[in-house]
Amino acid sequence: MQKRKFLMILAAASLLPVVAQAHGPTRQKVTVTVEVAADPATVWATVGNFQDMSWHPAVRSSVGENGNDVDATRMLTLAADGDPTISEILYKHSDKKMSYSYRITDVLVEVLPVTNYSSHLTVKPRDGGGSLVEWRGAFYRGYPNNDPPENLNDAAAIAAVTGVYQTGLDALVEKFGAPAS
């Protein structure tokens, strides 16, 4: 009986390295912020409508349904070869808090190398005037299994999402100007 128990423990212990390596990807997070000279209400008037992403240079057009209501949808057509699209759904919107949250429901990993993506866009007053705009997201890499190809690994996903956020927020700085130091 002792020998059998010992063999079971030994067998279980030998599987630990396999289990440890087979956990798959971890959730990644990105937060990008910018400060702009315009007051929060002015900035929110530009970015606060879930249906309108004309302020983002990577978005050619946006069509959707149900405005800023929870479960509103939008499909973004990107300004890139082949007119790739991203479909999204809104799950939180507050004009009072100047914030909304959404998630991607459909995108090809060749367009944005992520899965299970959710994002939050918020405009806050900045000490000394102007606004702080924060765009943050959480997601998994585009390849769900171990040993992803380089274009679908964690680094590729982080770089792509950071690039999307930075490009959009840089456009807001261009539109509204940077606050005086």
Rank of each mutant, 00 (worst) to 15 (best):
S94M: 10
I86K: 05
V70P: 10
N151E: 13
V19I: 15
P149D: 00
E35Y: 13
R74L: 06
D83E: 14
M53D: 08
G177I: 07
S54D: 14
Q28K: 14
G177M: 03
V47T: 14
I86W: 02
K29A: 15
T26E: 15
P40I: 14
T77V: 06
P57V: 06
D83I: 03
V63L: 00
W44R: 10
A155S: 09
V18W: 13
W55T: 12
T105G: 05
L112D: 01
K92C: 06
S118A: 08
D69G: 12
V173N: 02
P40K: 15
A138H: 09
R103E: 05
L108M: 05
D170Y: 03
A41V: 14
T26N: 12
E150P: 08
M1N: 10
V133L: 03
L108V: 00
A20R: 12
D170F: 03
R4M: 13
A38H: 14
S101K: 11
A80C: 09
S181W: 00
M75G: 04
P144W: 06
A160T: 02
P57C: 12
S119R: 07
D95Q: 06
A45Q: 15
E65H: 12
P40Q: 13
V32T: 15
A157F: 00
T162R: 03
V63G: 04
S14F: 11
R136A: 10
I104R: 04
T105L: 05
L76W: 04
L15W: 08
W135V: 04
A159T: 11
T122N: 07
S87P: 00
L7M: 15
A138R: 08
V30W: 01
N146C: 04
V30H: 02
V123C: 06
P84G: 09
S94H: 07
L121V: 12
P148H: 04
R126Q: 10
V18I: 15
L132C: 05
L169Y: 06
A37C: 14
S14P: 02
A178D: 08
T73K: 14
D127Q: 10
S119H: 04
T162C: 01
Y100C: 04
Y140L: 15
I9P: 03
K97Q: 12
A45H: 12
N116Y: 10
A12R: 05
M1G: 15
G130C: 08
S14K: 06
K3V: 14
K96L: 08
V63T: 14
P179T: 07
A38E: 14
S118K: 09
F6C: 07
E134I: 14
Q166E: 13
G163Y: 05
P125V: 01
P144K: 08
V63K: 08
A13R: 09
R141G: 01
L172D: 03
L112P: 04
H93Y: 10
D52K: 04
V164Q: 09
L121M: 13
R141P: 03
N116C: 06
R136C: 08
T122R: 11
A180F: 01
V59W: 09
V18H: 07
A12P: 07
A80D: 07
R141K: 08
V34M: 11
E134N: 08
V114K: 01
E88P: 11
V173C: 01
R141M: 05
Q166R: 13
N146K: 09
V173Q: 08
S181Y: 00
G168N: 06
T77L: 07
V30Y: 07
E65C: 04
V43K: 13
G64E: 02
T162N: 12
I104E: 06
S118Q: 12
L108G: 13
